[in-house]
Simulated scan of single mutants.
Amino acid sequence: MHVEDFDFHLPEHLIAQTPLQDRTASRLLVLNKQTGEIQDDHFPDVLAYLQPGDCLVLNDTRVLPARLFGVKAETGAKVEVLLLKQVEGNSWETLVKPAKRVKVGTELDFGEGMLKARCTEELEHGGRVMELHFEGILHEVLDKLGEMPLPPYIREQLDDRERYQTVFAEKRGSAAAPTAGLHWTEDLLAEVKKMGIQIAKITLHVGLGTFRPVSVDSLTDHAMHAEFYEMSKETAGILTATQKNGGKIIAVGTTSARTLETIMQEHGRFCEASGWTSIFIYPGFQFKGLDALLTNFHLPKSTLVMLVSALAGRENVLHAYHHAISAQYRFFSFGDAMLITDRNREK
């Protein structure tokens, strides 16, 4: 199977540049993964596809304001640094622009000395390992100096940085938001609980490797970047009971899906676990940890389009995407949602 098999043309005006004022106001395309049938709904209608005994799985990661703008200490040349993941201690894997300005030994200054960084290792694709120097707590320093790391296709400024966080975000560490979770509000989640549906939380700190374009022709040649995940004993118990009692597990977002499938692949059951996953899900993959997936619309030829195609079939997914384009759905991070399930809407 080739990368080109997952290509489609997306008019640029359908890329959502700003979030809707009401998180739940987005549209919802429902794709039946068995029949390929498509239903146009609105996001609150997602409740009509859930039943008592089901379990909704949320990723509670919190995005770091990890985009930093600084200067080279020696020359004053401007440099942009994006913190990706903590390597050890105060050393971080980062992306640097322009990378050619930063070699091993280069020292950078942010906020007139509030944060300093020294390059200790050069990586591929503009990556650098930077050793950070600061006083106090790093998260507080980032809150003062950093900006939200919005994807490059979003060119508008974000007025409220909390709109790039889910309402259930808790554990800091992501370089990008689990965007399928952005549609939920506390009120709508309360409705889910009233219906007798469990809510379980997992953590996967999203790295930019998930969104990078696939640079090989054959899917089997692609290597995913590793991302940290964690599942608690409590969540494992909820998920195990859901499966045992015949309920369905609905993953909110591809990050939740990858975490569930990583644990099932490595342990054969839901259990307390943490580690680094580089799981790559594409057609032919056998899902064991979820029954349905709530997600946004993804970039052409991306690993995320491949993941949803593994669940619903490539032809079904591409047909649904073409329908969404013709129906003027909003795409990507601040765009509309898609539910992949085998249920029809409850009347």
Rank of each mutant, 00 (worst) to 15 (best):
V192T: 00
P149D: 05
D217Q: 15
F228D: 00
L239Q: 09
K248A: 12
I197E: 07
L188I: 13
E170M: 11
L145Q: 05
I238G: 12
E230S: 12
E147F: 05
T254N: 08
D143A: 14
G247L: 10
V141L: 11
F168V: 01
W184Q: 11
L208P: 02
L188N: 01
G246W: 09
V206E: 06
A226W: 01
L182T: 06
F134G: 07
L260I: 10
T262K: 06
L188W: 06
S174C: 12
T185G: 00
V216F: 03
I250Q: 02
A241C: 08
E156R: 10
I154Y: 05
V206Q: 01
T259G: 06
T203Y: 09
H222Y: 11
E170P: 04
V141M: 03
L239V: 04
G146D: 06
W184H: 09
Y229D: 05
A236Y: 03
Q243V: 00
H205L: 05
E227H: 09
M130K: 00
T262Y: 08
A251W: 11
T210I: 10
F211G: 06
E227P: 04
S215A: 15
Y164N: 01
A176K: 10
T254G: 02
F168P: 08
V252Q: 04
E186S: 05
L204C: 09
Q157W: 03
L150Y: 06
V192F: 09
M130F: 12
V214S: 04
K144A: 14
H222S: 08
V167W: 02
G209C: 06
T166R: 03
A226E: 14
T203H: 14
P152I: 07
I250R: 01
H267D: 00
R155Q: 12
R163L: 10
A236L: 10
E147C: 01
M231V: 14
S215C: 14
H133E: 13
H267P: 01
T235L: 13
